[in-house]
Amino acid sequence: DHWEIRVGDITIHLKDVDEEIIRWVEEALRNGDDLEEIKRWVEEVLR
């Protein structure tokens, strides 16, 4: 699977990601969370 999350001008590409993570990231972006923080979290989860 390949996911693209778009929020404003930001697009995040994710592969082999659980839908729950996608929802979490979308929510975090909508809440204005720091992008670097989100990326770190996702990388942590995917490890």
Rank of each mutant, 00 (worst) to 15 (best):
E27T: 08
E27Q: 09
E20D: 11
E27C: 02
E44G: 05
E44W: 00
K39G: 05
D1N: 13
L29F: 08
I21H: 06
E36R: 10
I38E: 00
N31G: 06
N31P: 05
E4M: 02
I21V: 08
E36Q: 11
D33W: 15
V42H: 01
E43Y: 02
H2T: 04
I21N: 01
E26D: 05
L14Y: 05
D1K: 04
I5D: 02
R30W: 05
L14R: 05
E37N: 12
V45A: 15
N31F: 07
E4S: 01
E19G: 13
W41L: 09
H2L: 05
V7W: 11
W24Y: 12
L46K: 04
H2I: 11
D1V: 02
D16P: 14
N31M: 11
G8E: 05
N31S: 13
I5F: 03
V17G: 09
E37M: 15
E43A: 01
I5C: 05
I12V: 12
G8Q: 05
R23N: 06
R23T: 05
H13P: 07
L35R: 04
V45S: 07
E19A: 12
H13E: 08
R6V: 13
R40Q: 07
E27D: 12
E20K: 14
A28V: 11
R6G: 07
G32N: 08
L14E: 02
T11E: 08
R23M: 07
K15D: 12
D1G: 09
G32Y: 12
E26H: 03
V42M: 10
K39Y: 11
D18E: 11
D34L: 15
R47Q: 07
L29M: 10
K15E: 10
V25W: 03
V25P: 00
E44Y: 01
I12H: 03
D18Q: 13
L14K: 04
D33T: 15
E19N: 13
R23H: 06
E44M: 04
V17M: 14
I22C: 03
V17H: 07
V17D: 05
R40E: 08
I21C: 09
D16C: 03
I10W: 07
D33Q: 15
I5T: 03
W24K: 10
L46F: 03
T11F: 05
V7H: 09
W41F: 12
E43P: 00
V7D: 03
D16E: 10
D9I: 07
T11D: 04
E20I: 14
W41S: 08
L46E: 03
R23V: 05
W41I: 12
E43H: 01
T11W: 02
I10E: 05
V7F: 12
N31T: 08
E44C: 04
W24N: 03
W3M: 12
D16V: 13
I22Y: 08
I21L: 14
I38D: 00
R23K: 09
N31E: 04
R6Y: 01
I5G: 03
K39Q: 10
E19F: 09
D1P: 12
V7T: 02
D16K: 08
V42W: 12
E44F: 01
L35W: 07
N31V: 11
R6L: 06
E19W: 11
I38Q: 00
V25A: 05
W41Y: 15
L35I: 14
D34C: 11
R47G: 14
I21R: 03
V45L: 11
K15R: 14
I12P: 01
H13Q: 13
A28P: 00
I12E: 02
K39W: 10
E37W: 13
I12R: 01
K39M: 13
W24M: 13
E20R: 14
E19K: 13
R30Q: 08
E43G: 02
E37L: 12
G8A: 06
V45T: 08
E26Q: 05
L35P: 13
V17E: 04
H13M: 13
H13L: 11
D34Y: 15
V7E: 03
D33A: 15
I22W: 07
R40Y: 03
N31Q: 12
D16M: 10
G8D: 04
I5Y: 00
V25Y: 02
R47L: 03
V25E: 00
L46Y: 02
K39P: 02
R30S: 10
E37H: 15
E4K: 01
H13D: 11
I12L: 14
R23Q: 07
L35N: 06
A28D: 00
V42Y: 13
D34V: 13
A28Q: 10
R23F: 06
H2D: 11
G8V: 07
L29S: 01
W24V: 06
I12C: 03
I5N: 02
H13W: 03
V45M: 14
D9P: 13
I10Q: 09
V45Q: 15
V42C: 07
W41P: 00
D34E: 12
R30M: 13
E20Q: 15
D1Y: 01
L46C: 04
I12M: 06
I21F: 08
R6F: 03
E26V: 08
G32M: 12
W3N: 07
N31L: 11
D18M: 15
A28K: 14
E44A: 09
R40A: 09
E26P: 00
E27A: 15
V7S: 04
K39I: 12
V45F: 12
I22D: 00
E27Y: 01
E26R: 02
V45G: 06
D1A: 05
W41R: 15
I38Y: 01
I21A: 04
E20M: 11
E36T: 11
G8M: 03
E36G: 06
D16F: 15
T11A: 08
I5K: 04
A28I: 10
E4A: 02
T11S: 13
E36P: 01
V25F: 07
K15H: 14
E36Y: 05
K39H: 08
D1W: 01
H2Y: 13
R30K: 15
E37T: 14
I10V: 11
D18C: 08
L29K: 02
A28T: 07
L14G: 07
D16H: 15
L14P: 04
L14S: 05
V7M: 09
R40K: 13
I22K: 13
V17C: 04
I10P: 00
L14Q: 02
K15W: 10
H2Q: 10
G8L: 09
I38V: 09
L46H: 03
K15A: 10
R6E: 10
E20F: 15
D34S: 10
K39V: 13
W24C: 08
R23Y: 06
E26G: 03
V45D: 02
W24L: 11
A28W: 08
I38C: 03
N31D: 06
L46S: 04
V17Q: 06
W41H: 15
K39A: 04
I12K: 03
D34M: 15
E36M: 12
L29E: 01
H2C: 08
E43K: 02
R6N: 09
D18F: 15
R23A: 12
K15G: 08
L35G: 05
V42N: 00
H13A: 10
D1S: 04
N31W: 09
R40V: 02
I5E: 03
I22E: 02
R6M: 11
H13C: 11
I38G: 00
D33N: 14
W41D: 01
L46N: 03
V42E: 00
E26K: 03
N31A: 08
D33R: 15
V25Q: 00
E19T: 13
L14V: 11
E44P: 00
D9Y: 01
I10A: 12
I5V: 10
L35H: 05
H2A: 07
V42T: 01
I21W: 08
E44H: 06
L14W: 08
I5P: 02
V7Q: 04
V17A: 10
D16T: 13
H2P: 06
V42F: 12
D1R: 01
E4R: 01
R30P: 01
E37F: 14
E27G: 06
L14M: 09
D18K: 10
W24A: 10
I5W: 01
R47W: 00
E4T: 03
G32Q: 08
L46M: 12
T11K: 08
R6K: 14
V42A: 06
H13G: 07
R23L: 06
R47S: 13
E37I: 11
G8R: 05
L35A: 08
V7A: 05
E19V: 14
D9N: 07
I5M: 05
E37C: 06
L35K: 05
D16A: 09
R40C: 00
V45K: 12
L14T: 04
R47K: 10
H2S: 08
D1Q: 04
E43T: 02
D9K: 05
I12A: 04
W41T: 10
W24F: 10
L14N: 01
D34R: 15
H13K: 08
R6W: 01
L35T: 08
D33G: 14
I22L: 13
H2G: 10
E37K: 14
R30F: 07
R30L: 09
V42R: 00
E36K: 07
D34G: 11
I12G: 03
W3F: 12
I38P: 00
E37G: 11
W24D: 01
W41N: 06
I12S: 02
L35M: 08
D33E: 13
V42G: 01
R47H: 10
R23P: 01
D9R: 02
I10L: 09
E44T: 03
E26C: 03
D18P: 15
D34I: 15
D1T: 04
L35C: 00
D9T: 06
H2R: 09
E26F: 04
E20C: 00
E36A: 10
E19Q: 12
V45I: 13
D33M: 15
V45P: 00
L29T: 03
R23E: 04
R47I: 12
L35D: 04
I38W: 03
E43C: 07
I12Y: 03
K15Q: 10
D34H: 15
I22N: 03
L46V: 08
E43N: 02
R6A: 06
E26W: 02
L35S: 10
E44V: 03
D18G: 14
H13V: 13
